[in-house]
Amino acid sequence: MLTADDVHFGYDAAPVLAGVSVSVGRQGLVGVLGPNGSGKTTLLRLLAGRLRPRAGSVRLDGREVSGLSRAALARRMAVVPQETHLAFDYSVMEIVLMGRYPHLGPFELEGPRDLAIARDALAATRTAALEARPFNTLSGGEKQRVIIASALAQLDRRAENGGTRADWGDGLLLLDEPTASLDIGYQLDILALLRQLWTDRHVTILVSTHDLNLAAGLCRDLVLLKDGRVLASGPTAAVLTPAHIRALYGVEAEVRPHAAAGHLTVVPIGRVGDEGARP
C-alpha cells in the first residue's frame, strides 16, 4: 500500500535518513522502532508526504505521494501526533468533525452524513460518551482516543463509495509515538484500541515508537531505525532479538514470550559494558 524505497533526506547538509526502505501492505501493522533522534519522525513526515525525499521515492498504491493533491492524500492517510494542545475550547465532536476537512468543499458545512461518520469514529474509539465535552477537559488518554477518532473520520470513505457503514479499509493510520506522553494505563488502552482497529476494522497502521514492549505487543512487523538507516526489518518475532536491541539502544535485554501477555516481552537488564548489571 505505502512504500518508501531507498529514501534519503536531510534538513541541512547532514543526512537524517540515508537509504531507508519501508513498506506497509494493505492491512499491515508495522512499527518503526528506534532511539530518539534515529529519524523516526522524519521518516513519518516523508511517508505522509509532508517532506520530499532528496533521493528515492515514496509511493501510495504505486503512485508517487508528491504527485497526489493534499486532499487526496489526506483522504487516504491520517496522522496522529504524540500530543495535541488546543488554544480554544472546541468540543470533542468539533475535533472529530475536523477530520472531514479533506472531504468538504471550501464553503461546505458538515451535513448529517459527516455527523454519522464522526459518531461511528467516536464509537470505535469508545469515546461516544465524551461527544459534548470540551476537549481541553479530557485526560491524556481520552484526548489521544479522540484524536484517533478524528483520524478515523478523516479516513472514512463511505461518502465516496456510496455506503452507509464505516469504511476505513482503504485508510492508513500513521501514529508518531502515540503513547510517549501517557502513563502506563493509558498506554495499554491505546495499544488495545489500535490492535482492535487493525483486527476488527481492517485499518492499516504504521506506528513509530521507542517503546520496545509496545512494539512487541502491537506490531506484526518491525523496522528498526538507527542513525537514519534500517538496522533490520521483518516480522516482530524475527527482528526483536537481544542482539538487535543491543545494537539499537546499547542495552542488554532479555526477550522472551510472556504467557499471560500473549506476546514477546523485553526486560532491559543494563547498559552494555555495565558489568555489575549483567545477570
Binding site: 505522509a48 509532508r50 493534499r70 486532499a71 492524500l73 489526506a74 483522504r75 492517510m77 491520517a78 496522522v79 501526533p81 495535541t84 494542545h85 488546543l86 475535533i95 475536523m98 477530520g99 476537512y101 479533506p102 484524536i147 478523516q154 500513521l174
Partner: peptide, 10 residues
C-alpha cells in the same frame, strides 16, 4: 490542532 495535524488533514 497544530500545523503538523493541519497539514495531515490536507
Amino acid at each position: 490542532l497544530g500545523s503538523e495535524s493541519a497539514e495531515a488533514r490536507g
